[in-house]
């Protein structure tokens, strides 16, 4: 059932994380693990890509890794 997933991959959830602190794509994927959202790996990648394209966050390099972030 849908209620089995305790985490939802939504634009609002991603936005809240990126306002809090800069994150890499890997950081974000850890927040929306497939076992918690009930989505497949492909769905997770596709949905997260669409959300990030829409949010169009700022980017900066931290420790040689690309991080995304948003300001309010």
């Amino acid at each position: 059932t849908p209620s089995a997933s305790d985490v939802q991959l939504t634009e609002e959830a991603v936005r809240r994380y990126l306002i809090r602190k800069p994150m890499t794509t890997k950081d974000l994927l850890k927040k929306f693990q497939t076992k918690r959202t009930g989505l497949s790996s492909d769905q997770t990648v596709n949905v997260l890509a669409q959300i990030l394209k829409k949010l169009n966050p700022e980017r900066k390099n931290i420790n040689d890794k690309m991080h995304f972030y948003l300001t309010e």
Binding site: T24, K26, L29, S41, T44, V45, L48, A49, L52, M66
Partner: peptide
């Protein structure tokens, strides 16, 4: 597994890099 996470991150990075 961590390798699956790496593959997902690589796929996502590639998708975003082709866009931005």
């Amino acid at each position: 597994s961590s390798s699956e996470a790496d593959e997902m991150a690589a796929a996502l990075d590639a998708e975003l890099n082709s866009f931005m």
